[in-house]
Design a protein around this nucleic acid. Sequence first.
DNA 1: AATTCGTCTTGACATTTGTCAATGTTTTTT
DNA 2: AAAAAACATTGACAAATGTCAAGACGAATT
Lengths: 192, 192
Amino acid sequence: MFDVFQDYLSQKITLSAQEFDLIKSVAKIKKLRKRQYLLQQGDFWKYKAFVCQGLLRSFRTDDKGVDHIIQFSIENWWAGDIESSTLGNPSKNNIEALETTTVLLFSNNDFEMLESKIPVFKDFIAALITQSYFASQNRVHDSISMNSEERYSKFLKTYPQIANRVPQHMIASYLGISAETLSRIRKQIQKK
Amino acid sequence: MFDVFQDYLSQKITLSAQEFDLIKSVAKIKKLRKRQYLLQQGDFWKYKAFVCQGLLRSFRTDDKGVDHIIQFSIENWWAGDIESSTLGNPSKNNIEALETTTVLLFSNNDFEMLESKIPVFKDFIAALITQSYFASQNRVHDSISMNSEERYSKFLKTYPQIANRVPQHMIASYLGISAETLSRIRKQIQKK
DNA sequence: AATTCGTCTTGACATTTGTCAATGTTTTTT
DNA sequence: AAAAAACATTGACAAATGTCAAGACGAATT
């Protein structure tokens, strides 16, 4: 399973065989069954997780017990809770496998070691976070400027690989609308 | 005006006098009048801007000519468009001064030079972007999980310094609701 | 094979929010 | 000081969305 990560990294940066070995030596493979949790709200999360195979959802449960999905992570994406692991706070997020999933886990310590020993890797991760930041900014913009139908259509266009692997009501949760409203929007779109 | 930035940096990281001089040597002071633009949608933005004094809004104008405010930046905050300057795309954002404002401008080249010569500075900026990232994630979460009144109340609590320097209809824009709705929400809150 | 569970849809109704128009007030500009 | 522009509020109505309840369908479990 490490080769998925190796392929991923190779496409982004150039590393020596020794550097790959170093990374491999600290990567822990973890398998998750469908519906199994990788992280639960309140836990202290001290890892970075890379998804080799499968599909995860990150979500928060509010006072009323309603889930709100912040992110889906599929193959070649990262998952986790940077906020919790950076600030050392208990995590606000749950992470659950929606399919049988294999992730690579890196403890914070190991990860920092990798960053300090492999500067290119450090820069890559920084660039990754920067990109995640403006992806998030764009999502904020969408949420304040588009109506539900537009947001749904954009979701389909942007994440077709996710859209057909995930139940509708979870897409609704991701978009911040009720499952019923999404169902009606889909009906409307069909008519056109 | 550079001393505002120096004070800011001193609180975050430790730098030598020489390092401060280096930073100062590439910082360009720019004054903006009220309503003056620092950046316009479509421009190529190649800077980082630090606000020494005043207040900026970053926003995007949609097809219908409606503004959507992404961010307010006050003293000791950054402004700009990382997405545009990182990817080299024309900017999606406008940045306008809502008050007489003084910013420190760093060109991308100068900024990279600073990062390479002052590792602590580079790490600090990376940490800053990381924090901005999860602030943005939290805003996404708020937008999908809270109603308008809750979002407004949280805005007041989180940014009291901004709330009373900015017109209501801009807060509405930031929250993704109409000015009329915000007005009614305020009336409701008063009653309680 | 039968049963349970999760998913998606639909109807009916209530609530929230947007839109348009009007008005009074304050702030800015001339 | 007068005029113009920006701002905040309100009413009336329309549109969008949420909530609750019910039912159909298929997948997973026993």
